[in-house]
Simulated assay, not measured.
Amino acid sequence: MNKLTIATMALIILAIGYIAAGPYLALSGIKVALENNDSVKLQTHIDFQVLKQNLKDQINASAFQSSMGDANSPFSALAAGIVTTITDKVIDAMVTPSGIMAALSNKGFEGSVFDKKHKLFKDATISFDSHDMASIWVPVENSENARFVLKREGIDWKLINIIVPNLHQIFH
């Protein structure tokens, strides 16, 4: 083999290794950005538009499913509509770099996953769902694991969804 072939193969192996390490690098980047309160750096690891829409869809579906459980109530559809409107506004306001930074600051919510006493992404595990999707599984007290979904964009990985365990219980 000539030097060009060896160099090309080495470059391909390095690129594959970098892409495979991407979810770990993205998780590390998110942690560092949050710990340093760096909203600009956080934007490089999160696709906020897709994340907002996925969270809205998840919450609205759970609220709709809960409201359909009481089909005899004439107010169930109205309640689902109100929840959808409120959800959209709250998600748009909170799921921004500055909104996340504010929630994770010293003014965070006591006793929640945003409480600084909790170590961020403690005991998290990463699994590959496909060649361009990965999941970060984070244990949540008294619940199933929360799932943070990453999608590969080129050679970078970005957070696109957070699947909240037991979300349906909020609406019951």
Rank of each mutant, 00 (worst) to 15 (best):
K52I: 01
L78D: 12
V138M: 05
A33W: 02
S73Y: 07
K56S: 06
D47N: 13
L159Q: 01
D38H: 09
L11R: 07
I86H: 05
G111E: 08
L34R: 03
L4W: 10
T96K: 07
F171A: 02
K52A: 04
V40A: 14
M94L: 14
A79D: 05
L104Q: 09
V50S: 02
L34K: 08
I16C: 07
N54L: 07
S66V: 05
E144R: 15
T96E: 03
D57N: 15
G81Y: 05
G69I: 08
I160C: 03
V50N: 06
S39V: 12
V83S: 03
V40H: 11
S105R: 05
S39F: 02
L25P: 06
L78I: 13
N106S: 14
I6W: 13
E35W: 10
M94N: 14
I6K: 15
S62H: 05
F128M: 11
F128G: 08
N106H: 09
M1I: 01
T87V: 11
A61C: 03
F48L: 00
G29L: 07
T125A: 10
M1W: 04
G154T: 08
F64A: 13
W157P: 02
S127H: 04
S66D: 00
A10W: 09
D123E: 11
G99L: 04
P139W: 04
N145Y: 06
A15M: 12
P165K: 11
L167F: 01
L4K: 15
D132A: 06
A7H: 09
R147G: 05
K107P: 00
K52G: 09
I91M: 07
F171S: 03
V40E: 15
A93R: 13
A103C: 03
A7N: 09
P139E: 00
T125P: 10
H131P: 11
M68R: 11
S28N: 11
S127K: 13
T8L: 15
F121L: 07
L78E: 14
A93Q: 08
T44Y: 05
I16R: 06
K52D: 01
I13L: 13
F171M: 02
I100T: 04
G22S: 05
K158D: 00
K107N: 15
I16N: 08
V83G: 01
A93H: 12
V149S: 02
Q49V: 08
F121V: 08
K122P: 00
V50A: 07
I6R: 12
V113G: 05
T84K: 14
E110H: 13
K31E: 02
N161R: 08
M133Y: 09
L104D: 00
L25V: 13
I6S: 14
A124M: 10
N145G: 04
K89M: 06
R147Y: 02
I170K: 11
N54G: 04
D38F: 05
S130L: 04
K117L: 11
D47Y: 00
E35G: 10
T85F: 15
V83H: 02
L14F: 14
D47V: 01
N166F: 11
P165T: 01
S105N: 03
S143A: 15
Q49K: 14
M9N: 11
F48E: 04
G154D: 09
N54R: 13
F121M: 03
G81F: 01
A93L: 10
K122R: 12
V138N: 10
L14R: 08
S130R: 03
M94G: 07
S66Y: 10
L150W: 07
M9I: 15
K158N: 00
A26W: 00
